[in-house]
Design a protein around this nucleic acid. Sequence first.
DNA 1: CACTTGCATTTTGTATACAATATGCCAAGC
DNA 2: GCTTGGCATATTGTATACAAAATGCAAGTG
Lengths: 232, 232
Amino acid sequence: MDGSSFPIARSSLPDAAAERLRTLIIEGGLLPGAKLNERELCERLGVSRTPLREAFRMLAADGLLVQLPNRGAQVVALSSDDVRDGFEVMAALEGLAGELAVARVTDADIADLRALQAEMETAHAQHDLPAYYRINRAIHDRLNAIAGNAVLGQTYRTLNARLHALRFRSNLNRAKWDQAVAEHRSMLAALAARDGAALRDLLIRHLRAKQQAVLATMNNQDSEILLGGNEQ
Amino acid sequence: MDGSSFPIARSSLPDAAAERLRTLIIEGGLLPGAKLNERELCERLGVSRTPLREAFRMLAADGLLVQLPNRGAQVVALSSDDVRDGFEVMAALEGLAGELAVARVTDADIADLRALQAEMETAHAQHDLPAYYRINRAIHDRLNAIAGNAVLGQTYRTLNARLHALRFRSNLNRAKWDQAVAEHRSMLAALAARDGAALRDLLIRHLRAKQQAVLATMNNQDSEILLGGNEQ
DNA sequence: CACTTGCATTTTGTATACAATATGCCAAGC
DNA sequence: GCTTGGCATATTGTATACAAAATGCAAGTG
């Protein structure tokens, strides 16, 4: 919201620390459930406790950290219910993004998305999972940008970060992957046809499929997914 | 998210300060755009600057405050675009809440909601606007509770608080009010009939109507709505 | 041997001191 | 008269000191 005001000035010590921690959590440098020792983190980040604690509060508000009074902060460890609920909300948000995007999308946007889709198909053909995830994320971000709703974008990014802290990447079998790429193809077609309702439904189904895949992974923990319980 | 963990222990100085500030902002004790002086607020709340600043960070993450580096915090002043965007997201969230609620609602829930609806009709008949708003909010909160999605509830409450900081209450003419009450009647019927798609559509239309009303009020600023620009 | 109790240590919570930055005012110059 | 520079003041930013609480360990007790 807002963000429009002029004094562009991001950055302050707490913001920088929060950003650094956010990355650590999302990229897996800090695993779910890990306890965060203030003094130790202060040294690692080169800041004192005051700005670090402000960063903690920000991340806690984003749902990436849980703070227990007198017992410090730890990286959130999402329960199966949290994941189910989170993806349901994500599906609704992406559905909205699709509807809004249809109303504002330009031919140039579609050309860009087609290029991304082509990259995605290439990554898929070459079994390049990291590239696939990167492009996948770029496409979804692009769609949200086209939607042009700042509140939606903000909400989406926050929730996305929380779910990414799970590090559910590794879970993707061949069939699911093929399916996901095909879904993206349909989505692009719906967008090009300016069919908002269709795009919305496709996005919701797409997210529901992801939800199911992640939940399945969480339950049979034979995959490399890491959840809770691990002290740093 | 989460919140399920056992050590119930809410409350700490920063949490308490944040809660107090949140109330001040939403209830109008601090108007949009008001600059928040740390030392002064410290005295008013009886806390020192450290916990107050942590509270600032929490509220900023919720979008109730804007913090400018070296220039302090001020109550957010939503632009017309922010309001448009915010209500669009709210509509999507409430729509989801409706769909989920249908899948879980019990007869007892419906009885409760019918009672609330009756109260609402009474308040409407008696032109009791404050009571109407209170009951209206209770109904929407109840629906979200029935939906049973913690992430949705959290997201909903946060965004709701931000929009309520606008204090758009005063804007409701007779026709709009009648319409809103009628819509609530239809929504309750759809819920009782377990018609998720219908309830979803009704909720989205309901929210869109509210959006339009608020935007109209914002634009003709002859009403008593107060937006931005007012230093405390 | 399990369980409690008390102490030492660690860790978090809050206040405050000091530093850096911004703000407002007044005078000097154009 | 308007602008500009510089100083005094106020305000925010960060580090740190002290207080309070939790944690871990060891000794004592049933």
